[in-house]
Amino acid sequence: MARHITTQRKILVTGGAWLAAFIIFFPVLWMFLTSFKSELDAFSQPPSFLFFEWTTENYATVLERSDYFRFALNSVWLSLGSTALGLLVAVPAAWGMAFSPTKHTRGTLLWMLSTKMMPPVGVLIPIYLIFRDWGLLDTRFGLICILFLMNLPIIIWMLYTYFKDIPMDILEAARMDGATLGKEILYVLMPMAIPGIASTVLLNIILSWNEAFWTLNLTTIDAAPLTAFIASYSSPEGLFWAKLSAASTMAIAPIIILGWFSQKQLVRGLTFGAVK
């Protein structure tokens, strides 16, 4: 017997759910609207919701600041760089652990997870001093390494849970058909591993893009990404709300879109496979 859902109940749920969704989304929406206001309208009380003079001048102003692109470019560099490095190291590791597990595999995986539990302040001082002494402060390379290492346990775990789901029987079958190891990997394993790798890449980009402990502490100008750029609005430029909103909208838009596409995979990655 199919569950009978009355129209009345559906309308009630629709109202409640949309109200909740609207309240939660409101700060983002408000920022988006403010980014199209003039600075004067942004401050006006009572605020105008839709009937103000829409303008794109804030975007133009932010983009004209010669340094905006450098910050944005740093964000791109840092997230892509740390992701590429992460895949290079994590794919073999996850592959090895998923396909030829030993009695140490379980312990190794849990140890990797436990390194993620370390609060960054616990290692801030040595890392800061090492960076200072090695001239890595405020360099993209240094920060890429930090972000890569910070996310490495998550990448390995996520890839591991995906690789483990690949049925081993299919390998046997391929071998029966006379496939060599190289062909096996190329034609059998890779196609099945690609979706897992793709969602791992997405999660890692999102995490690196939004990282705001190391990026704030280890950069000043040269390697500073968008997190630091936005932080520079905290004062005294915080007075320019419309420009802050425009800069913020541009900083978060790519990640919100990526995030929306990868919600399901995120759950898996963020809970280390504990919730699927």
């Binding site: 909740a20 609207f22 939660i24 989304f25 700060p27 920022m31 939004n210 905290s234 802050l244 929306w260």
Partner: peptide, 26 residues
């Protein structure tokens, strides 16, 4: 679908943006 997207959106907003939007605009 759309309501769900709206609810999860704040998670993807970088911490410095969330903080300044709340501090100033709200």
């Amino acid at each position: 679908g759309i309501a769900r997207l709206m609810v999860i959106a704040p998670f993807f907003v970088m911490p410095t943006v969330s903080a300044l939007i709340w501090k100033n605009l709200l």
